[in-house]
């Protein structure tokens, strides 16, 4: 498939996912009502449900997925390791510990969000600070440090959960598995996504070279140190914002860039926007499923992204192995 056709397909899928998210939910809205509301007609209640409840939630879902997928793609280049992902590195663990402590203290709203954001940033700085050591960052060392720290955050999460009163446990568990019902304002996430894309996409050709090794990139005229720092700063910001929006949604950052690569698009000038579109679409679809599968019971969206993505990824991997 040619690049423009691929990006057009992803954009169409993204729009379709938002339409689906608008159309389905606990209050049943018919296609005719949806169409009327989209044209500005229809009943007041329908419009409130659509534009003040479902649309902002779809935006938040989309932006969260886009942030995570973009962060994953950037971290994979930074670590030159396809297993890199904001969650594997323990960034979400740090954010979760900070958020759970805030919940335990009875904090909500902006303080909770701020706490999660700070936790995510601290966890990122910790991983990269500890992995730095005497020399340059090595991908393996970073990944191992991240995995160990993630295990440590996991233990702290277990500790906090066991101390928590039963009443708060459900909310905490949902947050840990990704919950889109907390966030209310999608504009900060949009701003961060735009900043992230602007900071990385224009020079994405150098990421193609970086992905093939630092020494080679250096010999081809890439400023390796500056590129590494930028990748680190941007992916930390993207991840912390995503975690703040929706708690821990695993799997998106790891798998979406791979799906794009498996579709044959390895050039980062295509990969970065494509991963953002596909990641957003995946989370919007997953959230629609999470809201309706066992309605009125809602599922954590992270459970659904994993249940959708794992078999898809395994299938593509098998197909790739068969072709080689």
């Amino acid at each position: 498939m040619r690049t423009p056709a691929f990006l057009a397909l992803l954009t169409a899928l993204a729009l379709a996912s938002v339409l689906v998210a608008l159309a389905i939910g606990s209050a049943s809205i018919s296609t005719a009502e949806l169409w009327a509301a989209l044209r500005g007609a229809g009943s007041e209640t329908t419009r409130i449900v659509l534009f003040e409840l479902r649309l902002p939630r779809a935006f938040i879902a989309f932006l969260t997925g886009a942030l995570l997928a973009l962060a994953g793609a950037l971290l994979q280049v930074l670590l030159r390791n396809p297993l890199a992902d904001p969650y594997v590195l323990g960034v979400s663990g740090g954010a979760a510990v900070a958020a759970l402590v805030a919940m335990l203290l009875g904090v909500a709203g902006l303080a909770l969000t701020g706490s999660a954001f700070a936790g995510g940033l601290i966890a990122t700085l910790l991983v990269f600070g500890l992995a730095r050591g005497p020399g340059a960052w090595s991908g393996t060392r970073l990944l191992l440090t991240g995995v160990v720290l993630a295990a440590g955050w996991g233990a702290l999460i277990g500790f906090i959960l066991s101390l928590s009163p039963d009443a708060g446990l459900r909310g905490m568990l949902f947050w840990l598995m990704g919950d889109l019902s907390y966030a209310s304002d999608w504009r900060p996430a949009l701003a961060v996504l735009v900043v992230g894309l602007l900071a990385t996409w224009p020079t994405a050709r150098s990421l193609n070279v970086m992905a093939r090794g630092e020494l080679l990139a250096g010999s081809l005229g890439v400023d390796v140190r500056r590129t590494n720092l930028r990748l680190f700063a941007v992916s930390a910001l993207l991840t912390a914002t995503a975690v703040t929006q929706a708690g821990s949604i695993g799997f998106v950052g790891l798998v979406v860039p791979h799906l794009v690569r498996l579709a044959g698009f390895t050039d980062h000038r295509v990969l970065l926007p494509a991963a953002a579109l596909a990641g957003g679409t995946l989370v919007v679809f997953a959230d629609s499923v999470a809201r309706t599968l066992l309605a009125p019971q809602q599922l954590p969206v992270g459970v659904v992204t994993a249940l959708l993505g794992v078999p898809l990824f395994l299938y593509l991997l098998q197909r790739e192995a068969g072709r080689a």
């Binding site: 030159r80 396809p82 193609n208 992905a211 093939r212 090794g213 010999s219 690569r261 390895t266």
Partner: peptide, 13 residues
Amino acid sequence: GVLLQDLPQGFPA
């Protein structure tokens, strides 16, 4: 230009 001794294959291309 340099031809390095070891070139990691990195990501698919």
